[in-house]
Amino acid sequence: MASRHLAFLPALAVVGLALGPSPARAALQLFADVGGTTFSCFDNQACDTNPTTGVLSLGNAVNINGVVVNGSIQTSTGNPATPGLVNVLNSSALTVTNTNATSTSATVAISDTDFTGPANSYSTSGSGTFQDAVGSLITLNWFNDANNAQGADSATDTPGTLVDTFTYNVTRVADSFAHSETGAASDPGAFSMTLQFLYTLTPGGQLLSRGMTELKPRVVPVPEPASLSLMGVGLLALGLMARRRMV
């Protein structure tokens, strides 16, 4: 694991805007605690403005305890809802603004399950720009769970192993960040991924073009020698049959 610059925090808090019952099955979901006020949103529930399964989108100008979020979208691919696609959990937001007269802290988690294994590597990334937010603090965490447990039942519900983490203190009026990391993983079967944001945003501070991603490509099994030999025998037999027909 390595740390780099990165930024994406309160935007997630916006997800909690519309409350809804937990889905009967595992699903893409988000939970936020913004200044002591908790919120949650689940894929395909009333709070989700995008009907596509695997896309959790919130409306614009979502105000959660004085933190206003625009353009918040979470996406998930590589599980039963999107078979054949790469395993990716992603979260983004166009703008996040603290309209309070005091600094506001938040913790947000986003999670989904049933990503397709086997997988033996991961890539994490994140980026964003802070404006008028000197003194703000951000910590970003990426989790993986080979036991495929559902995360984000609370802001601190992050099952599995912490595969990457990032912390940054904002020191400039305009401060941009970028972070990326790769590493080894061990997921023989279906697994879950969880993204978590913890932040303190100063009064009037803004976070723009926030993004955070965890990607785990599926390993395509290589045929064993015995299987290759059997395939070779089969191809040889087909070739002999075709030759006899030509004689």
Rank of each mutant, 00 (worst) to 15 (best):
L228F: 04
A81I: 13
N87A: 08
S154W: 05
N120S: 14
S103Y: 08
A226D: 12
T104Q: 12
T49Q: 12
Q74C: 01
L94Q: 09
S192L: 11
F39K: 06
K216I: 07
D33P: 06
T38Y: 05
P10Y: 03
G183N: 10
L236W: 07
L17A: 06
S176V: 15
V62L: 07
D114S: 13
L198R: 13
F42E: 00
T124D: 02
D153N: 10
N147C: 07
D175K: 13
A133M: 09
G232L: 13
T202V: 14
L6F: 13
T165V: 04
D157W: 08
F143E: 03
L137G: 05
S186R: 14
Q131F: 12
S127L: 12
V15D: 13
G234E: 08
V55P: 00
H5Y: 15
S154D: 04
G211R: 05
R25T: 15
P10M: 06
L201P: 01
A101L: 01
S136M: 08
I110P: 00
E224N: 05
Q150C: 04
L207I: 07
A26K: 14
T95N: 08
T194I: 05
T75I: 00
G16T: 03
M212A: 02
G160I: 00
A18M: 08
V134Y: 09
T104A: 07
F31L: 02
D48I: 11
P221Q: 04
T99P: 06
T52W: 00
V233Y: 11
F143I: 03
A27M: 14
G16F: 05
A174C: 05
A226H: 10
F39L: 13
S121A: 13
V170C: 02
V68D: 02
S176L: 15
A93I: 09
T200A: 06
N148A: 07
C47M: 09
A81M: 12
N148E: 11
D145R: 08
A133G: 05
Y122W: 10
P221M: 04
Y199M: 09
E224V: 12
M1Y: 15
G183I: 05
T124K: 00
N120T: 12
S72N: 02
F115H: 06
L137D: 03
V233Q: 15
M246T: 06
V170G: 00
Q150E: 13
G36C: 08
A13C: 12
G239F: 08
F166G: 01
